[in-house]
Write a protein that binds this DNA or RNA. Structure first.
Lengths: 334, 334
DNA sequence: TTGTAGGCGTTATCAT
DNA sequence: ATGATAACGCCTACAA
């Protein structure tokens, strides 16, 4: 592969001039520009990005850490982040932390060892303290789905409390009063907020939150299955179950049929996230739309602006408003 | 960040020695090894992978091109490929071609401009000729879901013909004789093969393939919806519809209900791929399991072995045997 | 506007 | 086993 030297030689100019036309930030006379471009074409020259990185101390790599790579949750977000970065000539390096702290830290370490210029983080388990430490080390990053007040400009979230509120409110508005709730793991911030929103809606209707109708799940299908059985044993008197995410809702659907409910006639179900398959379940799943892709897009744009000085004037949205998407799994009580 | 120079100075050895302990391939005396390691610890030294790449002409990057990043098809595969590569200290760079030739070529160009040591390709539209040209340029790559005879050792596929055969056979074995077929885009190799397998099964049962019961879809949900309507207008006399992938099957389910069928009583449906949501549809979708993740794993292992001389003795499987997974959407005719 | 030269942090090839 | 030293391909003052 041709190097900058050969181009310089063929074009009868110096290295520096070739470098200038590559980067295009310093003026070069039209004549030499032509000469150099012709030489580059002739040799099929491609700049060596590694050498560029070494000399400029910029890798043009952005590390993206998601808590899970498999599963339906992240693929659209990754797709958008990758597009956004690639359009700006940056490379996305993707790593997965598997929803435990050690693995997430290892993922971050890995990305740093790749010499990423910046990181986009969707983490569940890592402490704020760790992230603040990262910030003190002058490592630029943006955060998806988690808010740290001190770094709020780089945090992109959905209002999970509001989402929990909207789901409960929709179920209440449909006439349900005996409502079971399957929450996410209590150490996860979004799970806490969704639950808080749920309780707020109940309070508005003067309904007490009934612990016998509550069970904590693990955000996974299996957890949803088990949780519904657990609740049913404690108290079988409910007409709706709200789940803190769609995967658990699918599990709950499964168990509901095992328990003899018919959906949605004798039991309504609501989820959260609006994953792709929410339209495929039967009945289709009423759920809160979680704009995870939009958050990814914003996180990427923040990096482009702050780290690479991309001067897009687009306004970034830090907190998205969720919306409830009603579907067949929510039955209107007459 | 500390450099190798500082480590060498602190440990009172030469650069070269430090480099040796980093790479660990040349013997170093235990005493100096300790000294160097102590110095590295003290300085919090981390090798600069960029500089390593420049000097060694190895980037340890593997480019992964998938035809679609969004959607449920690839996320599991990517997850496995990333794990496999990272375990070997390689970085996955992911790019998406959007199922058209230009975009796929652009994706490959992009990955090459990243100086990837090798590529893993899941392409739909790029010609064999282009891939062979890539090969002539000594760019190492492995291929998923497409077979080129001249490069068969690096191609990892599922036997699509067999899959088409198995699906049809299962439907036939369930007693169906009037079977509609929604095929994938005819320019896609896997679509052709699946159709061929379907026809072979019909032939075994001495059933003629009826073009009035056939429609070509686009592998997407919308295509499946439209295709079933089209077929129904041509000929409404069928008891089962086999779809060339799950997404179209979901669309077909939707249209089937619009047309007044009840599932699976009056219409059986079968898919292909066994995507995650096949277990969530109602009725659950009988389909052909497509071991896309396994193919990814093999493709990664091939790269590790051939490009990085990873001496794993594990035998690689080039062609996977599909299996039919029967579920509720397939009704047994009595 | 253009050229010169030093440096970026390694690896690799020689010697020793 | 260890040490000098020359690449690796480019960027970036500084000089012309």
């Amino acid at each position: 592969m041709a190097t900058i030297y050969e181009v310089a030689e063929l074009a009868k100019v110096s290295l520096a001039t070739v470098s200038r036309v590559i980067n295009g930030n310093v003026k070069v006379s039209p004549k030499t520009l032509d000469k150099v471009k012709a030489a580059m074409d002739e040799l099929g020259y491609r700049p060596n990005s590694i050498a560029q990185s070494l000399a400029s101390n910029r890798t043009n790599r952005v590390g993206v850490l998601v808590s899970e790579l498999s599963g339906p949750f992240f693929s659209n977000m990754l797709s958008i982040v990758e597009q956004e970065l690639r359009a700006a000539g940056k490379h996305a390096i993707i790593a997965a932390g598997h929803s435990d702290e050690k693995s997430e830290k290892a993922g971050i370490e890995f990305l740093l060892s790749c010499r990423c210029d910046a990181l986009i983080l969707h983490v569940d388990c890592v402490s704020d303290e760790y992230l603040l430490e990262l910030h003190r080390q002058d490592i630029p990053f943006s955060i998806i789905n988690h808010r740290i007040e001190a770094l709020s400009d780089r945090c992109f979230t959905v209002d999970n409390e509001m989402g929990g509120y909207l789901a409960a409110k929709a179920v209440l508005a449909a006439g349900h009063r005996k409502i079971a709730y399957i929450s996410g793991p209590s150490f996860k911030e979004d799970a806490q907020l969704r639950l808080a929103g749920h309780k707020r809606a109940l309070a508005e209707y003067n309904i007490e939150f009934n612990e016998a109708l509550h069970c904590t799940g693990n955000y996974q299908e299996e957890g949803g299955k088990e949780a519904l059985h657990t609740i049913y044993q404690q108290n079988s008197d409910f007409t709706a179950v709200v789940c803190a995410n769609d995967e658990m809702a699918v599990g709950a659907m499964f168990s509901a049929r095992e328990l003899g409910f018919s959906l949605p006639e004798t039991l309504s179900i609501a989820g959260f996230d609006d994953l792709i398959f929410a339209r495929y379940t039967y009945p289709t799943l009423a759920t809160v739309h979680n704009p995870i892709s939009d958050m990814g897009s914003m996180a990427a744009k923040w990096i482009l602006r702050e780290v690479y000085n991309n001067s897009s004037s687009e306004e970034l949205i830090n907190v998205f408003r969720p919306e409830f998407v009603t579907r067949r799994s929510l039955n209107l009580l007459s």
